[in-house]
Structure formats: C-alpha cells, structure tokens
C-alpha cells in the first residue's frame, strides 16, 4: 500500500507541475504569469520533496516564493511606466 501511495503522490506532483507550466506558458499577461510561475514553483518543490530531494525543493521555495515574483513584477512596473509615458 505504501508503494501505491508513493506513486499517487509522484503522479500528483508531476501532473501539477505539467499543468502549472502549461498554464504559465499559455498566459499572455506577465503579471498574471508571475502568479502562475509561483504556483509552478510550489509544484516543483512538492515534486522534489516527493522524490526525496528536499535540498533542491528548499532552493526552489527560497527563490520562487518571493524573490522571483518581486523581480518580475518590478520589471513589469518599470516597462509599463515607460510605455504609459510614450
């Protein structure tokens, strides 16, 4: 039974990552894409943990939770500000 559960968790993690990555790739608005990317990061962290690689999962969480969205959204703001002026 333990093995079946491991497989179920692994399948759920893989599906989550695939779905989040597809959704992020299909999203055209960078701000909303940033939200989807952080969901993708959470999915990857889950997948890495299920695959017994918590160190990698922790790296993903550290970078993907706040720093990446912050950099993305700051860039979006800068670009929009410049566009508004032109």
């Amino acid at each position: 039974m333990g093995d079946a559960l491991d497989d179920a968790l692994l399948a759920a993690g893989l599906l989550l990552v695939a779905a989040a990555a597809t959704a992020a790739a299909l999203c055209r608005d960078p701000a909303r894409q940033a939200v989807l990317l952080s969901l993708l990061g959470l999915g990857l962290a889950l997948l890495f943990t299920v695959l017994q690689a918590p160190d990698v999962g922790l790296s993903q969480l550290a970078v993907g939770s706040a720093v990446t969205p912050l950099m993305l959204l700051l860039t979006v703001r800068k670009v929009r500000r410049r566009k508004r002026h032109e």
Binding site: P54, D55, G57, L58, S59, L61, A62, V63, S65, A66, V67, L70
Partner: peptide, 29 residues
C-alpha cells in the same frame, strides 16, 4: 538557521541566504 544547519538538514548557504535577503524585503512589502 538554514545556513547554520546545512551540514545536518536540508538547506545550506544558498537557500538560507535567499531567505535572509527575502526577510529584509518584508520591510518593503
């Protein structure tokens, strides 16, 4: 804590370093 326990538990300089930097930016957000 994550930096200091790198040799014992998941984590280390990179992960902990990013957490420290994020912590400071709580002041901005």
């Amino acid at each position: 804590y994550v930096i200091a326990h790198g040799q014992l538990s998941p984590g280390g300089g990179f992960q902990g370093g990013v957490v420290v930097a994020t912590a400071l930016h709580l002041l901005y957000v």
